[in-house]
Design a protein around this nucleic acid. Structure first.
Lengths: 197, 197
DNA sequence: GTCTATAGGCAGATAGAC
DNA sequence: GTCTATCTGCCTATAGAC
């Protein structure tokens, strides 16, 4: 089955996705190859080409998978309810878990390599970031009306600032191999959002 | 001349450095090749290997060059004097100029690809970021004592936050092709640092 | 679904002529 | 200093057997 799309994805397709994702998070899209993934899974490159015809299609599937997982994580934070500050904390923890494994967010890594990506991947990337931004805007608006979060200007601009700070902090943490730096940066950011006592 | 080191660098070596820097800022270290640079300069790959024996050595030279240029830019901001807020603005402008050309900071791009870099490049990268951080800490301390900048906690943590936000904002701007987003993010950050009226 | 085999190309690098 | 020529190896991708 799984003719050429990996929709109701076979376990092999799922393993390919997981491994490719991991490699790209560490080495980037240009730095990853079918050979890497095939070797780690102990299959041949041809097997990968069966499930995903080319690197570009695999890349698109990876962004889609990542987006779905992220959406689910955000929905789960929403379902837990609670004040905006708690949801923001949960949002930050999603990033802390990734950097704890010395990886970048998949989409941040791809964003850096944007100018080398095929068109379909570029479009998917932009949609991903837009979705994140909208969710965060909602949290910020909620926090402002609750009084748990403080910020001046449009919620959109503060949402962008939070996303930027998180992704940038991960970039620095990767280079320094230093989780403490990431935590200090984020703590400092949250302190700003909570406002003066 | 220029036996194998490009110290009192020939004009060719300088052109190689400039072109390689540009390509890496757009495509990354894995995404760049001697062939790219040679073609753009209308010389052969062998000519590049004469000036820089290998990709790793060229990479090291690029970080060194970038670091020197950055240091000079910061010294020039210091020489201009003025309040901390003005220097911070100058610092931000350095980044705005780069993103205006749809490029990443060289070292931020390399940081994303950290796990693919040769050891010497890794070490040079970390030194670069440390230097930036120290300079910013100084600006922040100055701003706090002047009363032009406000922040809680250690200057180091706010310095990390500023660097993170700038690099992350560049990442998003590259993907969205949207300079306005970068400006909005940065404006929002500066507003926070100026504190409430 | 996964394999072997292989094509065709580009990567990083070197030797040696000019 | 720059070139031509060449090497070796890895890359993406395909054809066709099992």
């Amino acid at each position: 089955m799984t003719p050429r799309a990996a929709r109701g994805r076979s376990s092999t397709a799922a393993m390919i996705l997981a491994t490719a994702e991991d490699v790209i998070q560490r080495k980037g899209y240009s730095g990853f190859s079918y050979a890497d993934v095939a070797a780690e899974l102990r299959v041949t490159k041809a097997a990968l080409h069966y499930h995903f015809p080319g690197k570009a299609q695999l890349g698109e599937a990876l962004i889609a998978t990542w987006g779905t997982r992220f959406t689910e994580a955000l929905a789960s934070l929403d379902a837990a309810g609670g004040p905006a500050l708690a949801r923001l904390d949960g949002y930050i923890k999603l990033h802390a878990e990734i950097i704890g494994k010395r990886k970048m967010c998949l989409c941040a890594m791809l964003a850096a390599e944007y100018q080398t990506l095929p068109t379909a991947m570029r479009a998917a990337l932009v949609r991903f970031f837009d979705h994140r931004q909208v969710w965060l805007e909602g949290i910020l608006e909620q926090g402002r009306s609750e009084g748990t979060l403080q910020f001046g200007g449009a919620a959109r601009d503060s949402a962008l600032l939070i996303i930027s700070a998180l992704e940038g902090a991960m970039l620095l943490a990767i280079a320094h191999g230093d989780l403490e730096r990431f935590n200090a940066t984020v703590t400092s950011m949250v302190a700003v959002m909570r406002g003066p006592e």
